[in-house]
Design a protein around this nucleic acid. Structure first.
Lengths: 221, 221
DNA sequence: AGCGCAATTACACAACTGTATAACAGGCCG
DNA sequence: CGGCCTGTTATACAGTTGTGTAATTGCGCT
């Protein structure tokens, strides 16, 4: 009567790391960071808890890696459609698309807000986290700044473009936050996309809403 | 050889509740929610852990009460100087003051951001938290809306005032968040107050910076 | 086919968590 | 000044946490 031992498959390091990171993000997003225990993460990833310490020196390191992955996804999702072959060439359309992407799914999402909040929480005490945040913030803002500069608006020198990017970034972040926290209040006529696009337009003195390319409904890859 | 028992003083319910709430906020703000255990909270409040369950039905309830207290403070700090006897009467000055207050200490503060993030984390799963959040958001936004309506701007009907409030709220929230997370990047010329006041002005089409009452340096009560 | 290594599991452990309950004592009322 | 209510402390407890370590077994290698 030998005690049964769970059967398993050997996987590559990359596969296992990705599975563990994905499981960690999943749990933090859906159930909060307090529920993201080594046992819960391992369980969701389909392995036993001990394996986490085989691929990461500590649970802490796994979580950190997971957050970096999330931030990369956020920026990539906001850029969607800007680098494609059929990407809009009109600078105003490009800016409008970027703003709109930032203010709808999958970027706007209660789960992502929770994930992001859990991440922000750690910024003050862990310098690696602060570095990740600073890097992500600057990368996003600089995309915005480039899009604004491409508009070649009269009177917008480098300094003014930079300040406009800071301001537009703020209004986008605020709307992202609020519409993710209270989705039911930002639907229909008060949609975050509409408000955000027209707000950025107002800040730059142009009609961005008219430039926004129509959304392609089933365009989720 | 009687085992020594810790001496204590009896206090009013209000005193004890405030002490416990304050201790909880303190610890969540400085060390994160994971460190806010019943033992740590009781310790900081100068009592023993059991007392928490004497004033709150659970640790959960204490934390919830603490968050509500925090949100009240945030709004109150932003209103500072608006209700005083020597408050500005010019509507533009009042709006500018409110915006500026929201974007400097003590409202802008890394610890408050941490506190706020820990709070936001919980709104998805705990309906009481979501209610607190919704209530706080609407209260703040409606202050903003009233200040905007008082400007009596041409063409700003109720609907437009409401949408302007949503937008201004977003830009303030975004700047608050970013300057709290990366304080060193929002000092001097790129100060959050300056950018925020001029952004709100731009969104409403008026020069708010000129209307902003000068800051009284030592005015922290 | 089967050896050997390392990926994976299994188990143990001490620290810590929130909560329940009983014993104690501070200080108001008589 | 003494009793007694209740605010407060003390202690116990079961559950959970991250981590360390030894045993197993999948599977690439020759």
């Amino acid at each position: 009567m030998t005690p049964e031992r769970r059967p398993y498959r050997r996987e590559s390091e990359e596969t296992r790391r990705e599975a563990l990171i994905g499981a960690a993000l999943d749990i933090v997003a859906t159930e909060g960071p307090a529920q993201a225990t080594v046992r819960a993460i391992a369980d969701r990833a389909g392995v036993t808890p001990g394996l986490i310490r085989h691929y990461f020196t500590s649970k802490e390191e796994l979580v950190r890696t997971a957050y970096l992955t999330m931030m990369d996804r956020m920026t990539a999702d906001s850029r969607r459609g800007l680098d494609a072959a059929d990407a809009p060439v009109d600078p105003a359309a490009r800016l409008a698309l970027f703003v709109a992407n930032s203010l709808r799914a999958p970027v706007v999402d209660p789960q992502r807000l929770g994930l992001w909040a859990a991440f922000i929480q750690r910024i003050r005490h862990e310098s690696e986290m602060r570095d990740i945040h600073r890097h992500t913030y600057h990368r996003y803002r600089s995309i915005l700044e480039d899009l604004i500069r491409a508009l070649a608006l009269p009177g917008f020198d480098d300094r003014r473009c930079r300040e406009a990017a800071i301001t537009c970034n703020a209004v986008i972040d605020g709307l992202w936050m609020e519409s993710s926290a209270l989705p039911e209040e930002f639907s229909g006529e008060t949609g975050a996309v509409r408000i955000g696009v027209s707000a950025v337009g107002a800040l730059l003195g142009l009609d961005l809403a008219a430039a926004l390319p129509p959304e392609i409904p089933g365009d989720t890859e």
